[in-house]
């Protein structure tokens, strides 16, 4: 019983990260109908830069803000150079290559500057575990899914109550219709990439105390976040959060009851099965791609 609870709580922690990454994919997909495969590296940027800033004697809150700021700049620049050039042609998938390339370059550069080893990011949330019915869990691990759910709720309110939020949904729904009411689709795309990257940087900072920060941490987190976005239905923000939390929990159960080695095999098999049954993802809606 306490073992199962243990896996469940740890699963929520890592699942919350997948959820946060997937919300980013959802936001970027909605505005640009493109996938930023360097998004995992935005997490890395947030985590690694925070450690670097702390090394330079900058206080934690400022280090976090600065890192998220850099992540935002990264996202905005990436949209300009790697996504927008392909935006005019709906059939172009050039962004696949450019975003993967930028991710690899960033990872290499981080390896040179930061070193090829993992370092913990200190946080009061991992000082000592709290015990719930015999299961030990760090506050940090509980904080992560809470933040993920909070963000999807806030995003929903933002998209219903503000013109910019409505514009985001309008662009996701139909770019021509958005244009004729006066929405500059490129501005919305820029804002969306800034927002997604801020959430990516934040996710990196939140997860680093739990799994440690390294130049290569973004790869698997990015891929799993993407997988979660696809099975959740990339058009639905609540959908990808639910899928993220479930995926994290299932992973931890496989970890605990079968083996760590089986984790990725089982996880990705599930992804494939879900996609065969629900091609639009569990909560997604069919997108009309007009060419």
């Amino acid at each position: 019983m306490s073992a199962a609870l243990q896996y469940f709580l740890a699963g929520l922690g890592i699942g919350g990260i997948y959820a946060l990454v997937a919300i980013g994919f959802h936001i970027m997909w909605s505005s640009a109908k493109a996938v930023n495969f360097a998004h995992g590296d935005t997490l890395m940027l947030g985590a690694v830069l925070t450690i670097v800033f702390l090394d330079h004697g900058i206080a934690m809150p400022l280090a976090i803000l600065l890192s998220i700021g850099v992540a935002i700049v990264f996202g905005v620049v990436l949209e300009r150079v790697a996504i927008r050039p392909f935006a005019d042609n709906a059939a172009s998938i050039g962004w696949m290559l450019t975003t993967i390339a930028i991710g690899i370059m960033l990872e290499s550069y981080a390896t040179i500057e930061f070193g090829a080893f993992a370092r913990p990011l200190p946080s009061p949330g991992v000082d000592k575990p709290i015990i719930i019915f015999g299961a030990g869990v760090f506050i940090q691990e509980l904080l992560i899914p809470f933040v993920a759910v909070l963000i999807v709720v806030l995003l929903g309110i933002f998209q219903r109550r503000t013109q910019l939020g409505r514009a985001m949904r309008a662009v996701a729904f139909n770019r021509v219709a958005a244009g004729i009411v006066g929405i500059n689709v490129l501005h919305v795309a820029m804002f969306s990439f800034a927002l997604a990257s801020a959430l990516g940087g934040l996710a990196g900072i939140l997860v680093a105390p739990v799994i440690q920060a390294s130049a290569t941490m973004g790869l698997l987190l990015g891929i799993k976040g993407f997988a979660v976005a696809i099975i959740g239905g990339i058009t639905s923000a609540p959908g990808v959060v639910i899928a993220g939390l479930l995926y994290g929990i299932i992973e931890k159960f496989v970890d605990g009851y079968i083996s760590t080695a089986a984790r990725e095999a089982v996880g990705f098999s599930l992804v494939i099965i879900v996609l065969m049954l629900f091609p639009q993802g569990l909560f997604g809606r069919r997108e009309l791609v007009k060419v």
């Binding site: 013109q163 514009a167 949904r169 309008a170 009411v181 006066g182």
Partner: peptide, 9 residues
């Protein structure tokens, strides 16, 4: 919301 979007400009 559609009407508010109509006033976007």
């Amino acid at each position: 919301d559609n009407l508010y979007l109509g006033a976007y400009s």
